[in-house]
């Protein structure tokens, strides 16, 4: 059957044409295409590798950044804590000082009050002495008029004045 018998004419032409086709394509066709594709593949591989490196670098930078941030936070909280401590110390010191000042002022005031009081008492006593002198003068003038009752009244007055002076002395001692 002629289907399975190679035809010489077609065989001849096939050899010639295929050889020509192969020569042309192997010379001017495929090597250009494949070398370009390989060049591109190499470039893609390199880009991917570079991208990986950049990513690793970025991750490292991010880590460093995070660490720095944490450090800053720690520093911040430390400074804040120190500030709070300082504030508390200052307030406590101020309070202490104020208390001492108050004590001082109070004691000064007390001393002054005591002094005032004493001078007042002295004044009163002098007044009383003058008064008693004038009273005794009046009584003495009355005594010159013989009135027994008057004399007894005078004695009582003197006795009372003596008791008054002891009361004042006792008061002074209390202060």
């Amino acid at each position: 059957m002629n289907l399975v018998t190679p035809d010489t004419g077609l065989l001849f032409w096939m050899v010639v044409i295929f050889a020509l086709l192969f020569f042309i394509l192997a010379r001017f066709g495929f090597p250009i295409i494949t070398s370009m594709v390989e060049k591109r593949n190499a470039a893609i591989d390199k880009s991917l590798k570079d991208a990986d490196e950049v990513e690793a670098l970025m991750v490292a930078t991010m880590k460093e950044h995070d660490e720095m941030l944490a450090e800053i936070r720690r520093e911040q909280s430390r400074i804040l804590k120190e500030a709070t401590d300082a504030k508390n110390t200052i307030i406590a010191e101020a309070r202490e000082e104020a208390r001492a000042e108050r004590e001082k002022i109070l004691s000064e005031a007390r001393t002054q009050i005591a002094a005032e009081k004493e001078s007042a008492l002295r004044d009163i006593r002098r007044e009383v002495a003058v008064l008693s002198v004038s009273v005794s003068e009046k009584i003495l003038r009355d005594q010159l008029s013989p009135e027994a009752a008057g004399k007894a009244y005078l004695d009582r007055l003197i006795a009372e004045a003596g008791g008054m002076s002891t009361d004042i002395k006792a008061e002074e001692n209390a202060n």
Partner: peptide, 29 residues
């Protein structure tokens, strides 16, 4: 017999077409 038969002509045309296709592709690159 090396006549240009139907198959030989088809072979020439398809080879020409293939050469043009590949060379145009190579030109693009």
């Amino acid at each position: 017999d090396i006549s240009i038969t139907k198959n030989v002509l088809a072979l020439m045309l398809s080879s020409l077409l293939l050469a043009v296709l590949v060379l145009l592709t190579a030109r693009w690159y």
